[in-house]
């Protein structure tokens, strides 16, 4: 078989340790405008812990479901910043390109559906971390599944920081 070994653009020239030193080395901007939305109270604690770290552009929020009969329909909810200040989903999602939803139990299933749907309509990437701490989160997993492009159903608390770090959030 004839083998061409002298190609100017040969990968061989681009794959040595010596060559690697000459690669463009320019600071990388944060890639993701991330929103982290905790779907229940225990998830909110995890989000608060993670929010202590300095992130490039991540914004942490808590979603509070509203019971039927409270004047709102199923799936309606209140959104607050991690410090308790009210937030509006439309504004939260404006400019966001990834939303990470956190759940530890089933209580946030309605929020998951609503946030997931809103992201879907806006073309925003979604990820769901279900921190299964033995409280049973099957419904949260089920609610997140249709709308979280990536789901970690057996996540632990460190997964959030790991994911956000990897995403340069």
């Amino acid at each position: 078989m004839a083998v061409e070994t002298n190609s100017v653009s040969s990968c061989a020239r681009a794959a040595t340790a010596v060559e690697a030193r000459f690669r463009i080395d320019r600071p990388i901007r944060p890639a993701r405008a991330a929103r982290i939305i905790a779907l229940d109270e225990k998830a909110a604690e995890v989000a608060r812990d993670a929010a202590v770290t300095e992130w490039a552009s991540a914004r942490f929020l808590v979603c509070e479901g509203v019971a039927v009969g409270g004047g709102l329909a199923v799936g309606d909810f209140f959104l607050r910043g991690i410090g308790g200040e009210p937030a509006v989903l439309d504004e939260v999602l404006a400019g966001a390109d990834v939303v990470v939803m956190l759940a530890t139990d089933d209580s946030g299933a309605g929020c998951a559906y609503a946030v997931g749907k809103a992201c879907w309509e806006r073309g925003i990437m979604t990820a769901g971390l279900v921190l299964d701490q033995g409280f049973g989160a099957d419904e949260a997993v089920a609610a997140l599944r249709p709308h979280a492009r990536v789901l970690l159903p057996t996540a632990d608390e460190t997964d959030l920081a790991e994911l956000l770090t990897a995403l340069r959030a």
Binding site: T16, A20, R23, I28, T126, L152, E162, L163
Partner: peptide, 26 residues
């Protein structure tokens, strides 16, 4: 192999779809 002998992961731009890789590294 085109990534280089040891890819420089400080320069990556991972996406949520890479969660398997992120979790495996962890």
């Amino acid at each position: 192999e085109s990534m280089g002998p040891i890819v420089d992961r400080t320069k990556e731009r991972l996406v949520p779809a890479d969660s398997g890789i992120i979790k495996a590294r962890q």
